[in-house]
């Protein structure tokens, strides 16, 4: 798919902002698939944005922007793995395989997003509130625990339960072919 925006000159600043805005969440997901740690993925996302912005004049607008920027993300993730003490078995081949799988699952993932919205709306208010606290800016599980006066372990469990509930809800809706 060509993400170039008609009417804008290739490599323009506004072009980048539009393309990045459209792709950022997918790049974030790809990074999280590769590095598995939320804050590492967020840090890398910022680095990817910075590099993509720097290299944007070299970007060929006939190419798929997401694929181009995912290439940068893959490179960053593999490099960061080398720098850390963690001996993760992430290879360039596996990173590429995962990227291909994400591309082939694009349709499902888009439907999943719409269904996720429905499933979140179906949650109990208490659970929605907890998610809201968990995903507030700069929030961590420790801050959530402090704010609601429960242990960190209990918060992990509660969030995990909600995630499971949401994933089950999406899976059922997907299998039923719900829009």
């Amino acid at each position: 798919m060509n993400h170039h925006i008609p009417g804008l000159s290739s490599g323009s600043h506004l072009d980048f902002v539009h393309l990045w805005t459209k792709s950022a969440r997918r790049v974030h997901a790809y990074l999280l698939v590769l590095v598995m740690n939320w804050s590492d993925a967020e840090d890398l996302l910022q680095e990817v944005a910075a590099t993509a912005w720097e290299k944007f004049p070299e970007y060929d607008s006939s190419r798929d922007f997401l694929a181009w920027v995912n290439g940068i993300a893959r490179h960053k993730a593999l490099n960061s793995r080398r720098k850390t003490a963690l001996s993760l078995e992430l290879t360039p081949e596996l990173a590429e395989l995962l990227e291909q799988e994400i591309a082939s699952e694009a349709g499902t993932l888009t439907r999943q997003l719409a269904l996720l919205q429905q499933c979140v709306s179906g949650l109990r208010k208490k659970d929605r509130d907890l998610l809201q606290l968990r995903y507030a800016p700069d929030s961590t599980m420790e801050t959530v625990a402090r704010r609601i006066g429960r242990s960190v372990a209990a918060c992990y469990k509660a969030i995990q339960r909600i995630h499971n509930q949401l994933f089950a809800c999406i899976t059922v809706k997907l299998s039923r072919g719900e829009p």
Binding site: L88, Q112, Q117, Q132, F167
Partner: peptide, 29 residues
């Protein structure tokens, strides 16, 4: 990583789980 390399269903489920997690904050924050 080993499981997603070997098993396609595992790979697809893993990708779906991560996508759900990335998109959740945008939906609920």
């Amino acid at each position: 990583l080993r499981l997603v390399e070997e098993d396609r269903d595992a790979r697809r489920t893993y990708i779906q789980l991560v996508h759900m997690e990335v998109n959740l904050p945008w939906l609920v924050d």
